[in-house]
Amino acid sequence: MTEGGYVGVTASSMIMTNKKLKEELESTFKDIQVIVPEDTRLNITAREEDALTILKFLKDRGFNFLTLISCVDWIKENEFELVYIITSYLQKNDEYTQREKLQIILKTRISRTIPESKTVTPIFSNAEVYERELHELFGIKFEGNQRLIPLFLEREYKIPPFRKDFDTREYVKEVFDKIPFV
């Protein structure tokens, strides 16, 4: 029926629980913080340099679905937090196991003054468009992403509009109040 397509999944990794994964992650990487807030979630906090290798590590263990890349602007700490949400497609086609429920949230912090990070497109090709969005809305540069062209916006903004110091109301006042009322 199906052609499989399990990227780098071994039989042993299929039964791996999140606890085991946590141990494995902690022993493999330095300066990593792994918490299991609930059975189906795994939160990893890591250094930005390690993000790429951790993602590779996870993909090799069958977490082959990059759901979302997001960014949180922690303006008080002067940091951006990049959030990668990774999960996996089905291991066997007509079986739903605990494994697919597991979602991994990988968080890394980068400086807000020089917002730069490395692209993860070599590992997850659909990351390209997420990185484009974050580049546009937060002004984060992803080194290695060749296509950081505008996505949604048509105007130029002094401050990327999704940053916390961009005041929507002020902007609206500034831009649209000038347009005469019809």
Binding site: T2, V7, N64, F65, L66, T67, S125
Partner: peptide
């Protein structure tokens, strides 16, 4: 299927 999965 392989492509679909790779592209999310």
């Amino acid at each position: 299927q392989k492509e679909a999965k790779e592209l999310g």
